[in-house]
């Protein structure tokens, strides 16, 4: 990391003195900061992977204030950074006004659609990945009751929940799914204590598998599930390693791939609407040595079959955000 910082520092100094038109890519993290063990960190990992493979360097900034969203975009665009990738839906308004002023710069925004000719909008089919882990939860559950713990109550997280419930019901129509949201403020993304309490409450109601789609709050969910001897499901990054043999699987959202792809395409970034789903490896479930003993051959076969059907379009998972409603509870 320190080596990396030095390179970055040196390029930054050079760029300043030269007035700069180096086509380096740039990455802007959201207010959560880049080491959040989840969304922003996945973006950072994708960028780091690109830098290691190509030997290139990239610019980055962690924001401190809302006014800096537009500021960082403009400053990077003026300094010649291309493409500029931003992690998070909250950039949409700023990008909407900036994109038109820099028609030669390519932008990529993750988790949101901004309809401009030089913007690539990357959205993920989280409902498809959640469907798969829902199927696994239902098969692993002995009590017929499984849980879902969301972070902040926003449509995106309801989309996770809805896909999950559909997956559970596809395997076991009579299963019960207990759903809780941690809160309605951004603090809900980083409240492991409350995550732990909610997990205990769900266990008391009979849940023996819980799925956490809650950012840093999920750490508490996974910990409590492991302590209480039930299974849990991680989210975004592969979190199986956190409690080997206790985490059934993780729903992968490959934010790192989205950043990596954008950086790789560089200034020729393909703009427009980019859906990262099962078909193109944008979402999926994690299988490694830490959960191999938990996933039976039958379970894997059925999930892989469903994944194939979703990818080919034979099976469609309802997207909560298409109509703000979920067909199953």
């Amino acid at each position: 990391m320190s080596m990396m910082s030095k390179i970055l520092g040196a390029t930054a100094a050079f760029a300043l003195s030269a007035g700069a038109a180096l086509a380096e890519p740039a990455l802007i993290f959201d207010l959560g900061g880049k080491f959040d063990k989840s969304f922003n960190e996945a973006a950072f990992n994708g960028a780091t992977r690109w830098a290691e493979e190509t030997g290139g360097s990239f610019r980055e900034i962690e924001l401190q204030s809302e006014a800096q969203r537009e500021q960082a975009l403009r400053r990077f665009a003026e300094a010649g950074a291309n493409p500029i990738v931003m992690a998070g839906f909250a950039f949409a308004t700023a990008l909407d006004s900036v994109a038109a002023d820099y028609p030669d710069t390519k932008f990529a925004i993750i988790d949101m659609v901004v309809d401009k000719p030089n913007v690539r909008s990357v959205v993920f089919n989280e409902h498809e990945g959640s469907y798969l882990v829902g199927m696994m939860a239902a098969q692993a559950s002995k009590s017929g009751t499984v849980g879902f713990i969301g972070g902040m109550d926003i449509p995106l997280i309801r989309k996770f929940a809805c896909g999950y419930v559909q997956g559970v019901k596809a395997v076991n129509p009579s299963a019960t799914v207990i759903q809780n949201m941690t809160g309605t403020t951004p603090a809900a993304w980083n409240d492991p204590l409350k995550g732990s309490e909610l997990t205990k409450a769900q266990i008391a109601q009979g849940a023996d598998v819980v799925y956490a789609a809650a950012g840093g709050t999920g750490v508490g969910v996974l910990q409590t599930a492991a302590d209480e001897g039930i299974l849990s499901i991680g989210v975004d990054s592969n979190q199986n390693y956190m409690h080997p043999g206790k985490v059934l699987t993780s729903m992968l959202k490959r934010v790192d791939n989205a950043v990596y792809d954008a950086f790789t395409q560089g200034a020729n970034l393909e703009t427009g609407f980019n859906v990262m789903g099962l078909a193109n490896g944008g979402v999926g479930y994690a299988l490694d040595e830490h959960n191999a003993s938990l996933v039976s051959a039958d379970m894997q076969a059925s999930v892989d079959a469903a994944a194939g059907q979703i990818a080919s379009g034979a099976l469609s998972v309802h997207d909560y955000m298409s109509d703000n409603a979920c067909p199953v509870e």
Binding site: G9, A12, A15, L16, I61, E62, L63, Q64
Partner: peptide
Amino acid sequence: LYQGGAELALWTSIPR
């Protein structure tokens, strides 16, 4: 301090 700090974050590796 706010704006100067933002510039530091943009162009150096001094963490926020």
